[in-house]
Nucleic acid binder design. Structure first.
Length: 441
RNA sequence: GGGGCUGUAGCGCAGUUGGUUAGCGCGUCUCCCUGUCACGGAGAAGGUCGGGGGUUCGAAUCCCCCCAGCCUCGCCA
């Protein structure tokens, strides 16, 4: 018999159907046994005799033929989407047996610590709360794509293996590449910028790799970067407008398609004002000094405390969880950043902060070949390391800009997760590549 | 890498002036139960108290070293 999905049972009262799925919970009364069967669409109660269902174990995979029956009024379970019906089991086939579970899976909250959750990753994926995280993440990434495709952006696949590290700054992973040394890409930045000189508008969803020795709750060594870049801009404002449009689009989609998932985490979409507020780094530091007495006014960047404080300010004063911070020091930024013509010491680079942490960085890029070349030398880079990039800007290149968002961080901060590892299916950090590196030795 | 905290049964945890046989909840196993929905009831198994060394008549408990984990700061396109 053709398989019926759990969520479709409520429209099939009186019909005999076949359900396939996992034994999520079992309530055994000896002569009568209740099973909550789980498939990708949800849970449903199966009722049957002890003879038929008594030997089932949690997470066994079964095919059950049964009759869909409406539940009597007083037996309706309002907590279950399918709570108005149940299945009277007629035939059972066990498709696969499960071993004893190392963690308690049937609980509504998965009460295990993060390392345990990751040690049993393939199993923890089966829990509704874990599934909710990745449903939200899929919607976020899908929304990013569609927002940009609606604006005529072309999706591209950035390479991960690169031949040089022209941007310096963060640490990179080295790759043994035949007789040469290569690296894992920290960002598709140069590729997306050079592609605009041919395609005008491009975006990518791809993995980036960072060998930072950062042991924090918001860093991964392998992460998903949502990158966009486009040209023929009049000013950096167009970049901010595009980013704001994309972020709003993402939030709208999550709001629309992830009600259940947001509710599971008691989460709400970030607060948005009419227009995301924007503030220059130096002004932000002045505000932080006024509000807290903490003097960071000469720092080149915002410390984690400062990021939290300026987000608190944006929420209180501007009614927004999101705030753009612009004008970082040109000299502390990569060679391609566009200095503000009004004050070249500061660059037209912009971070987007939300709920106390950096979600994105972006800005306007240099498009004049001679200026880029001059910067390459000034930044102490080798011309040959950026040869492909320079080539693009040598042959006609409009003003451009773009931004990049971290997919895991967005998921984390929408749902209020405490650790970014929860928002990555297979998180890589200093201590773990699927297995704990210390125990794998 | 610095600092703080933690490590006790498969999972989550309790366990102080150092003292007999190390407990609790969930899970597992056995038995009872025809209306439960985190079912309920009775019983059982399951521990090198992270590892090593030391102090002591006696250490989960105090000291030293190591290992692991969490948080935080630094670092961070």
């Amino acid at each position: 018999m053709e398989r019926t999905l759990v969520e479709d049972t409520i429209n099939k009262i009186g019909e005999t159907i076949t359900l396939k799925g996992w034994v999520n919970t079992k309530r055994d009364h000896s002569k009568i046994v209740f099973i909550d069967l789980r498939d990708r669409t949800g849970l449903i109660q199966i009722v049957g005799t002890g003879d038929l269902l008594g030997s089932l174990k949690l997470e066994d995979v079964v095919s059950i033929e049964g009759l869909v029956k409406a539940r009597p009024e007083k037996m309706i379970n309002p907590d279950l989407t399918t709570g108005t019906v149940e299945i009277e089991a007629l035939k059972l086939a066990v498709l696969s047996h499960s071993a004893e579970l190392p963690i308690d899976m049937s609980k509504e909250t998965l009460e295990v610590e993060l390392p345990t959750l990751l040690d049993y990753r393939s199993l923890s994926f089966r829990h509704p709360k874990i599934q909710a995280i990745f449903k939200v993440q899929a919607v976020v990434i899908d929304a990013f794509r569609r927002a940009l495709m609606e604006k005529d952006f072309l999706e591209f696949q950035a390479p991960s293996i690169i031949n040089a590290v022209p941007e310096g700054g963060s640490e990179v992973f080295k790759v043994d590449y035949f007789d040469h040394e290569a690296y894992l890409s920290q960002s598709p930045q140069l590729y997306k910028s050079l592609l605009t000189t041919a395609f005008e508008r491009v975006f990518s969803v791809n993995h980036i790799f960072r060998a930072e020795p950062s042991a924090t709750t918001r860093h991964l060594t392998e992460a998903v970067s949502l990158d966009a870049e486009f040209n023929f801009i009049e000013s950096v404002d167009e970049v901010l407008d595009m980013e704001e449009y994309v972020v709003r689009y993402i939030f709208d989609e999550v709001q629309q398609h992830c009600q259940k998932e947001l509710a599971l985490f008691n989460a709400t979409i970030p607060l948005m004002s009419e227009k995301f507020p924007i503030i220059k780094l130096r002004d932000a530091q002045e505000i932080i000094f006024e509000r807290t007495g903490r003097d960071c006014r000469t720092e080149k960047d915002l410390a984690p405390d400062d990021e939290r404080e300026i987000c608190a300010w944006a929420k209180e004063e501007k009614g927004s969880d999101l705030v753009f911070v612009s004008h970082f020091l040109t000299k502390k930024k990569p060679f391609y950043c566009y200095p503000d013509p009004a004050d070249p010491e500061y660059a037209l680079s912009v971070d987007l902060l939300c709920r106390g942490v950096e979600w994105s960085s972006g800005g306007q890029r240099l498009n004049d070949y001679e200026t880029i070349l001059k910067n390459v030398h000034e930044w102490g880079l080798k011309e040959e390391d950026v040869a492909l990039y320079l080539q693009a800007f040598k042959f006609g290149s409009p003003p451009l800009g773009g931004f990049a968002l971290g997919a895991e961080r967005i998921t984390m901060y929408i749902l209020g997760l405490k650790n970014v590892r929860e928002a990555s299916m297979f998180p890589r950090d200093m201590e773990r590549i699927d297995l704990r590196l210390s125990s794998a030795k």
